[in-house]
Amino acid sequence: MILLGEHAVVYGAPALALPVAELTVTATAAKSSHPSDAAEDVTFTLAGESGPLVLVGAEGLRSLVAEFERTVGVTDRPHLDVIIDCEIPTGRGLGSSAACARAVVLALADLFGAELDSGTVFDLVQVAENMAHGRASGIDTLATGSPYPVLLSGGVAREPRIGFDGRIVIADSGVAGRTKDAVELLRRGFDNDPAAGEDFVAAATELTREAVRELADGRAEAFGERLTACHGLLAGAGLSTDRIDALVRAALAEDALGAKISGSGLGGCMIASAEGPEHAERVERRLREAGAVRTWVVPIERFTGHAR
């Protein structure tokens, strides 16, 4: 889940993401008895309810498999059967493509007995992410492999300090977005008006930096205000929808500390910041009444920031 900095991170701005531990992906890989075909040497099968994923990301995953084989020196190129069980709803800005790619990399490593360092895993996942999104910043790849919040700034990832205990409520609008479409929308706009692009990146950078300071200093209300301001920035760039805007208004009407769209936009999820479990429950209930099809609550905790 992106807290702040989505889209702008591709242009060098910092971004802050929070892993959602209850949404998981499992992948298993096995050598098949089927004869290998150079054009079709891996078969992906989906378990669970996330059928659309491979339809939109299969080519990236195939490229990932090919790069994995080159990296570890697989020479016999057997036909592979890969089964993916994804609990993350697709097209919602929750990192499903990165999580699935990471699961596939680790499944292949298990199959071939390969020991991969974190940098190699990152590079392999990015092969699929760059095909899925056109140009991936790496924030999803990092966050789906971390038990802690991730701040990506200047190409360096670290865990931010958290000075308060709170909750982030995630609400699914029920409408899938397409990251590639949203990225292209912004790119065309920035090409037509470079000054607007510079202003967008500068504003996103300042909001994220301020939010990181407020997060560390325990200023929960000010942190929430940055979330809401970020929503205004993203909505002004044409990335929100009427349904997302309605959910943001509903959360704020329930005294959420802040609320915004999360992820690429043009659909997907919104998030709201709450003070604690009871407040989060009220916000969650109001969001469901306002049309959210699913909701999740993720702790954001003092000092450790470990989402569990």
Rank of each mutant, 00 (worst) to 15 (best):
I2M: 13
G5L: 12
H7K: 08
V10E: 03
Y11S: 09
Y11R: 14
P14I: 10
A15V: 10
L16V: 11
L16T: 07
P19R: 01
T24M: 05
A29L: 10
A30P: 00
E40F: 15
E40R: 14
V42C: 11
F44Q: 07
L46Y: 07
G48Y: 12
S50D: 11
G51P: 02
L55P: 06
A58I: 13
E59D: 15
E59Q: 10
E59Y: 03
S63Q: 14
E67T: 07
F68K: 04
G73T: 08
R77V: 10
R77P: 02
P78F: 00
L80K: 05
I84E: 07
G93T: 04
A107L: 04
L116F: 05
D117I: 11
D117M: 05
S118A: 15
H133R: 09
H133Y: 03
H133M: 05
G134I: 09
G134R: 01
G138T: 01
D140Q: 04
E159Y: 12
R167D: 06
D172Q: 04
D172G: 09
S173T: 14
R178G: 02
L185G: 01
R188V: 15
R188S: 09
F190T: 02
N192C: 11
L207M: 13
L207Q: 13
A211W: 06
D217C: 05
A229D: 14
G232E: 12
L233W: 07
A235E: 13
G238E: 08
G238Y: 03
L239W: 02
T241I: 08
R243E: 15
R243H: 09
D245S: 14
R249F: 02
A251N: 06
A253K: 13
I261S: 00
L266D: 10
G268S: 02
E275D: 12
G276Y: 02
E281C: 08
E284I: 03
R288K: 15
R288T: 06
W296C: 00
E301W: 06
G305W: 08
G305Q: 05
R308P: 03
